[in-house]
Design a protein around this nucleic acid. Structure first.
Lengths: 227, 227
DNA sequence: CGACTGTCGAGTGTCGACAGTTTGGAGATT
DNA sequence: AATCTCCAAACTGTCGACACTCGACAGTCG
């Protein structure tokens, strides 16, 4: 959080574009728009009570995040995913996190370890009494920490992009965690491997953890496409 | 090239936004704008002879590609790179290509091998009589093929983004290849390793090849920042 | 009956304009 | 001389409007 010299939080210059982008994102994740449907600028502008200009820019933003696609002279459409694309996303995500773990294993500090441990505790807490969305967010936050602690900021940016897409697909499926507490526990081996400072052990733990999730999510997604 | 049933090339619907984005990209890569300088929409609009709307959208596009950054109420600025950021880009690029090689080693077809071999030949040709820009493009094309043949389309997209940034930095440095022919030759071991279908050998060849480039480019970039 | 053509509504691409903000400098003050 | 204040110019964010394009539907001709 950026702060002024007096310690006040700076007033967020949340212009219309970002507000609209956030609202659209939320609507997309809530499933208000079916994949593939056309988003008319003028209609959205009326809905939000603004002109088309900021709507266009917000849509472009979401396009760059892979949530919308545009066709010349036809406008914006909600991004459609197929199971293969989702599989690619998970594959790439694993690639990134493996790399992050490899980097991280060589320079894990006590502070990082504590932060990861805390995050795991948070996951367990929301697993007991939290919404599905919260559970997903805290899960993502753990993995994001791994990326952050790797020290490669560019990697984090790509990870964030992939997360947007995974979230999109997961919430499209409906529900993911039948036993959130058990899912939270499966992160323990990753942290355990990191404590041994062994890149190989870390990669192995990740391979298993993400591999299971990938298989499960992609499978559910493939089923949903059929039914 | 898409064609109609009679063989006509489809008319490119190149709207202003894409044209402007391309021209801006070219100008940035040519070094017409120093890193960090402010790009005024109205001025660009006058230069291009259009209104501000398409200029804004083009700028947003370049922002999403990481070539510009924007600040609320202040507008767009040419992205500045420091050596550490460039190092991150190369680090991530190696991560991606290692993954691509790993995937590719298991399913290399004769067609893929021939394509890579051809591309290597093209590199040698432009190394003898081609511009520095051509040499870089053909070099990138070889590595892009590796990503494409991996079968993970999402990976290719990220690779393309990283390439934009690397190109930006490399052309900022001025020149890269003192001996382009030798550089082209250093790709041979990668192809050779792939022929043995060994993921480990492929990764090792890549590690060396990209490691050398990374060290060299980042070093040159760091020097330039000082002088 | 089928294929082509003209028309119409919806929607995007682009433009010029206005309001509020930021910036840089002239002038005043210490 | 250095710093502060205030103002004007420049710039961004947003808006409403217009022209052109696309897709659909009805009508026409073979």
């Amino acid at each position: 959080m950026t702060t002024t010299t007096r310690g006040f939080a700076t007033i967020q210059q949340r212009d219309l574009v970002n507000q609209i982008a956030d609202m659209l994102t939320e609507a997309l994740l809530k499933g208000d728009f079916a994949p593939g449907v056309h988003l008319a600028e003028a209609q959205l502008a009326r809905d939000f009570g603004v002109s088309r200009a900021p709507v266009r820019e917000a849509a472009r933003l979401l396009e760059s995040r892979g949530m919308l696609v545009s066709q010349p002279r036809r406008g914006f459409f909600v991004r459609t995913f197929n199971a293969d694309e989702l599989d690619d996303v998970y594959d790439l995500r694993l690639c990134l996190e493996r790399h992050a773990i490899r980097l991280l294993a060589g320079k894990l500090t006590a502070g990082m370890e504590a932060a990861l441990s805390d995050q795991l505790e948070t996951m367990r807490r929301v697993a007991r009494n939290g919404t599905a969305v919260q559970q997903i967010e805290e899960d993502v936050a753990f993995h994001r920490m791994l990326c952050e602690f790797s020290g490669n900021h560019r990697l984090v940016r790509v990870f964030d992009e992939l997360c947007h897409e995974m979230r999109f697909c997961i919430l499209l499926i409906g529900q993911l965690y039948d036993d959130a507490l058990r899912v939270a526990d499966t992160h323990e081996p990753i942290l355990e491997a990191l404590r041994t400072r062994s890149p190989e052990a870390g990669e192995a733990a990740l391979d298993y953890h993400i591999g299971v999730a990938q298989q499960r999510v992609v499978e559910m997604f493939r089923e949903r496409a059929k039914g």
